[in-house]
Design a protein around this nucleic acid. Sequence first.
DNA 1: ACGTAACTGA
DNA 2: TCAGTTACGT
Lengths: 264, 264
Amino acid sequence: MLELRLVQGSLLKKVMEAIKDLVTDANFDCSATGFSLQAMDSSHVALVSLLLRSEGFEHYRCDRNLSMGMNLNNISKMLKCAGNDDIITLKADDGSDTVTFMFESPTQDKIADFEMKLMDIESEHLGIPEAEYHAIVRMPSSEFARICKDLSSIGDTVVISVTKEGVKFSTRGDIGTANVVCRQNTTVDKPEEATIIEMNEPVSLTFALRYMNSFTKASPLSSTVTISLSSELPVVVEYKIAEMGYIRFYLAPKIEEDEEDNNS
Amino acid sequence: MLELRLVQGSLLKKVMEAIKDLVTDANFDCSATGFSLQAMDSSHVALVSLLLRSEGFEHYRCDRNLSMGMNLNNISKMLKCAGNDDIITLKADDGSDTVTFMFESPTQDKIADFEMKLMDIESEHLGIPEAEYHAIVRMPSSEFARICKDLSSIGDTVVISVTKEGVKFSTRGDIGTANVVCRQNTTVDKPEEATIIEMNEPVSLTFALRYMNSFTKASPLSSTVTISLSSELPVVVEYKIAEMGYIRFYLAPKIEEDEEDNNS
DNA sequence: ACGTAACTGA
DNA sequence: TCAGTTACGT
């Protein structure tokens, strides 16, 4: 028997909106620890990892580990039927091949439940090793989203270069080149507006902007984003989910044939 | 060496949005006087003339006259990457075939630069003689825009007729006819809401609404628009740019085979 | 600001 | 004839 009650239902809505562009079908894994998902995007280039810890739920009951295959678009359709202030409860009986989403309006005047068939989805669950990163950048998620969107009107790939002074996002395309430099800046009044750079070693890596722009769909989940970079490792773009966990996107860097793209 | 620093960057964004529907490529001319452009629209019917005087820039350095050919769509793409509060600096080295747009966020924490290749564009720079106009109408730019948009859902052309009492915009189409009369009105509290008519001689001219609607894209630049009319002369639709200059659109009147369009 | 619809160029 | 681009409406 599975029963997860999430008071802040809008959070689940945002999570699905953030993932559904990237992943069409995925297994949601429930254990005593929490509710999690790991899935490759449809072209097997990027990886999404979601964790909602059990402590973040108002009520969390998961008698035994359960993996539920669902179509993200269908979930998203159902969640569109939930109000932003609704309390969402997810239920599944042991051995059942369905899952039920229940939406309670804050006033309890309206209760909706949606039952959905589960799917069999094969997936390799990859162990993602904790790694040491050459550089970790934390910045406002809206700013990162804006930069990725802007640069994608110029080029297809972004070179992210980190030095002690700041982080530089560069692209080039038919119409010219673009560089956006964000200086390290810890002095702002509000910590969520700071740009903080932890750097052990300068690093410069190239990524497809298409994926970066997909990742930034998670911006509503957190006011800040953390970008962890190491040469030869996939970048990690992480959005913390308050009190509950995170959503992390992994993307392998492009190998540059044309190293001049890395010049300033 | 060219270096123009414009604190109110949104102004340049608006200027480009106003022109780019009409003109695809154009030469931007820089001299000690200021930054200007003159270009025909792609179908060679309308003419755009832009002037941003050097005094309007926070910093203006232009060692020698320079004509920079650019694709307006590409400029527009780059300017979309500038925030509305950004300070925009335009730079070009002598003899260089590129131009650089630099955007500084108000806090100086984010600095973006965009380099763009210049193009060779042939253009005849027309001398536009100062003319005496039969009638000059000044009215709120939003009202003029609204009238042009409304009339274009009825017909393709507008007859603008000026008498002492007011200005009349007329059209006719398959579904019927439409007339909008704006009375002279100087008594409003706010001068930018006034409709002022200076008339030496009544005048009635016909224009293609398609172009008028393009011209009204400049409405965000100024709360008022000035329409100068003379028979046998192109109309001038002018939007003043505060403290800096103007953007003027010229359009030749249609020669009416069918004079009944001019009747009230 | 986004999505659609119409137009133009290939 | 189709696709890309551009303009308009929501």
